[in-house]
Design a protein around this nucleic acid. Sequence first.
DNA 1: CTGAAAGCGCTAACAC
DNA 2: GTGTTAGCGCTTTCAG
Lengths: 338, 338
Amino acid sequence: MATIRDVAKKAGVSVTTVSRALNGYSDVNEKTRERIKAIAKELKYSPNLLARSLVMKKTKTIGLLVSGLRIEGSKDNFTYEVLCGVNDCAGELGYELVLISTDSKKQQEKTYNQLVQERKVEGIILQGIKTDDPYLEEVLKSDIPCILIDIPMESDSVGYVTTDNRDGAKSAVTHLLNLGHKHIGMINGHSQAFVSQERLEGYQEALQEKGIPFNHLYVADGAFLEEKAESETGMLLDKHPEITALFCASDLMAMGAIRAAKKMGRNLPEDLSIVGFDNIILSAYSTPSLTTIGQDRYQLGYEATKLLTDMLEGNKGSKRKVLNTTFIKRESTSENHN
Amino acid sequence: MATIRDVAKKAGVSVTTVSRALNGYSDVNEKTRERIKAIAKELKYSPNLLARSLVMKKTKTIGLLVSGLRIEGSKDNFTYEVLCGVNDCAGELGYELVLISTDSKKQQEKTYNQLVQERKVEGIILQGIKTDDPYLEEVLKSDIPCILIDIPMESDSVGYVTTDNRDGAKSAVTHLLNLGHKHIGMINGHSQAFVSQERLEGYQEALQEKGIPFNHLYVADGAFLEEKAESETGMLLDKHPEITALFCASDLMAMGAIRAAKKMGRNLPEDLSIVGFDNIILSAYSTPSLTTIGQDRYQLGYEATKLLTDMLEGNKGSKRKVLNTTFIKRESTSENHN
DNA sequence: CTGAAAGCGCTAACAC
DNA sequence: GTGTTAGCGCTTTCAG
């Protein structure tokens, strides 16, 4: 593996000159530069980024810290699509990407700061951590630039990107209300996610606008899990047979809800209308296909990276970004005939 | 950011001692070690991995080179699940993971060797590259340890992990034959994938065993694309209405095939049986749900990482691994009544 | 058991 | 334009 010295020796110049020639400095004779370039190529020289980073104190590397890079994530693809966005943007801007995945076991061993300091990432994007995660506090204290996904918190070195969950939820429920539904249940996600709270607010806001009182008995906790949502839906519909429509805080939970409803002999959408949230691939393939609120997970990752690199390069500007949702009408909702 | 010198100074010892103490060498007084450890903690010292790697010439980092980390991958999740497996295994063995994604544009700029040398990965896993990819040749020549996913090629520094595609395909087609189907079409993937060839062989082998002659007109190229598969299926069934069953080389293509068949007014599975390959999430949710050949993508990534780290650590042993498939019976296949 | 010194491959003042 | 020198933070002989 050729080093800069090898090139220098062969070219009969000093390493400094090689360094400057290859890095495009102007204060070097064009002829020398060409010669050096040729030799570098001949020797298949490529710079040792470790050494360079060590002296420059810059790694041009960002980290994507994911809590739970697990196979179950296949169902909603949230992490994957965020990753695609991060990867694309990082690539365009010339940053390397290291993937850091963590779980509670690993967190025992290393603090957030250790994790980040050791790997020498210049900044980091956090995805999938819960609001009660111990890392979150550390992040806010730390002065390593960081962008949070779906956690609306800010500090000098911390920004976030998220979706307008409240508005999305509101439009979902308004859609149901406009179809004539009066008794609308909600299967929410767990409370350790900001988005759950925001989506609940949107649900309430929509009801309020139409003068329908909020009934907390109509809201169940599906924990963002398909199975949990299935059982909760069963119980909810059992206890409150007057419910004719359901807003689920995720498509995956909507899948569970659909299954529960089918099991109870309810026809969809005649007997029960269901709206999801996310617009995951599955939602287009289920029977009935799911009316849902689309959010752009790729863009979430892309914007997070842009925000982060802006911070790293000292571009002052907003450290937050809120993306819009899109309403997607499919087969799982229809007019209330009761 | 505290360095080893800071710790040394505060502890009143040399950097050497600190290094040895913290790295668990035995030739250091236990009391000194404890004192140093305490001070390191107090100073929130964590070693600079760049510096360490530079001197040790070891980075404990592996790369996952993916061709096309794209949002479309959401549909089959191949890359994501492989990534999960790689990440888990790498984590368990104490390796860092850097994600390298490439496309034809990037390949113009940098050769494979440059890409890998610069980042100082000790070894690399290649996923999703086609058989005619220029990188492939470089890989085989290069002496950087590498594991290929789904490309059965070996050299001193190159191994591979794949699925028994031939056997999987064979069991799919045998299943159809056992159901009494005589005219079985195949929607294959593009020819720049080894798996396509292997699955075709399995298809042929199954036919042969039952004494049914191979008809190349029954095989269409769906290019692993849902839409292409849809149109190809339409054409195939148009030209050869005698076909009563279809083996698709991927579930995604099977989704396209299902759609085409439905459009032509064929009832599934009564008028047409379909078997897919992969067992992607969608295959369980489609209507009808898809009979398919399951392959374990997570394990593919996991085993690839194990193979790679074995090579890196000098453990001699097999440099290849072939995983088995599982047959999954669902609703898309039934007996032939024609 | 501990320390001094060398050096990993590179960049960046500062001279010439 | 180019070379000399120092040093990034760490590990590792080699002495003591």
